[in-house]
Amino acid sequence: MRIGITGATGFIGRHLGLLARDSGHDVIAYTRQAGSFVLISKETLYQSGNVPHALPETNLDALVHLSGESLMGLWTAEKRKRIWQSRVDFTAALVAHLATWKPENRPKVLVCASGAGFYGDSGDEPVDEDSSRGEGFLADVCVGWERAALSAETLGMRVVLLRSGMVLGPTGGAFPLLKRVFGLGLGGRLGSGKQWMAWIHVEDAVRIILKAIETETVRGPVNLCAPGAVTNAEFTAKLAAALKRPAFFHAPAFVLKLLLRGMAEEMLLGGQRVIPRVATEIGYGFEHPTLAGAFKALV
């Protein structure tokens, strides 16, 4: 298959490109980073420019759309605007651009990033792909994001929506920072520590994405999370144990809210107990089903 990836120089994009290449697929990497270079395809196929307007028409079997503004940082009005535009507006523009391609060249499947934030703060209630949306800014973004991607169905594309949790990897995502903080003995739970955390090892994340591309019956939301969701307190304890470091520090909820505003309440103090039902139903076997095992592999 010929697979295009936007955000190909990002953390997940790089891993996905390498896996797809090693699995025998041709990969076209798209990036908005001028002057950057990525080698992940047999033919070193590379495109740069302002995606989607500079996305050149070519024959694709699949397009994986991963690019978007980072959620980290203060959620000022300007930051929220960039998050919305880079996800919702950008995806709508991408689909509109694909509509200008000849039908025979359009991707057969569009795989679009989304997030477990779709479910809002679900408390202790388990949620799967059939669960309803939650409340909050992230839920609003995910709903708009997914709606924009689903408009590709009118072009005859199969659409897959990746509702991902925290993706853990040795060289990207949150893990390198967490490793440094906990390595200094400064780790600890956030708030009450009772909030649930959806997580997945990057190896499992990209394998599920590739399986979703290759499995024609998969469409709609796919929870990109491991089966072993944990609370923040459990996450803290297991990471500290893996690094053999103490985790005595506790970040009170009021301090996080004061410093990080909306981001703290939705990303750090709220959470989702996510079940990867679709991944299990299509027969995916997790390489890292438990957090302790994932941390052991990462450390």
Results as ranks from 00 to 15, higher is better:
residue 125 E to F: 15
residue 20 A to C: 08
residue 240 A to F: 07
residue 222 V to N: 04
residue 150 L to W: 15
residue 232 N to L: 06
residue 162 L to S: 04
residue 156 G to S: 04
residue 287 E to F: 14
residue 296 K to F: 15
residue 96 A to S: 13
residue 108 K to L: 14
residue 278 V to H: 11
residue 264 A to D: 08
residue 137 F to C: 07
residue 167 V to H: 01
residue 27 V to T: 04
residue 2 R to K: 14
residue 295 F to D: 11
residue 287 E to C: 13
residue 63 L to F: 02
residue 61 D to K: 00
residue 172 G to H: 07
residue 202 V to L: 12
residue 2 R to V: 14
residue 126 P to K: 10
residue 109 V to F: 06
residue 140 D to M: 13
residue 104 E to R: 14
residue 140 D to A: 15
residue 296 K to P: 13
residue 242 A to K: 06
residue 170 P to V: 09
residue 107 P to V: 01
residue 213 I to T: 00
residue 178 L to A: 10
residue 93 A to H: 11
residue 157 M to C: 12
residue 272 Q to H: 08
residue 246 P to M: 00
residue 209 I to A: 00
residue 266 E to C: 11
residue 267 M to Y: 14
residue 12 I to C: 05
residue 175 F to P: 01
residue 162 L to H: 03
residue 29 A to E: 05
residue 165 G to P: 02
residue 203 E to L: 15
residue 229 A to H: 08
residue 296 K to M: 13
residue 222 V to P: 00
residue 19 L to I: 01
residue 159 V to I: 03
residue 191 G to K: 01
residue 120 G to K: 10
residue 196 W to G: 05
residue 50 N to D: 15
residue 278 V to R: 13
residue 249 F to I: 11
residue 92 A to E: 02
residue 71 L to E: 08
residue 226 A to K: 08
residue 116 A to C: 13
residue 191 G to M: 02
residue 156 G to T: 01
residue 217 T to A: 15
residue 63 L to H: 03
residue 270 G to Y: 06
residue 17 G to T: 05
residue 14 R to C: 11
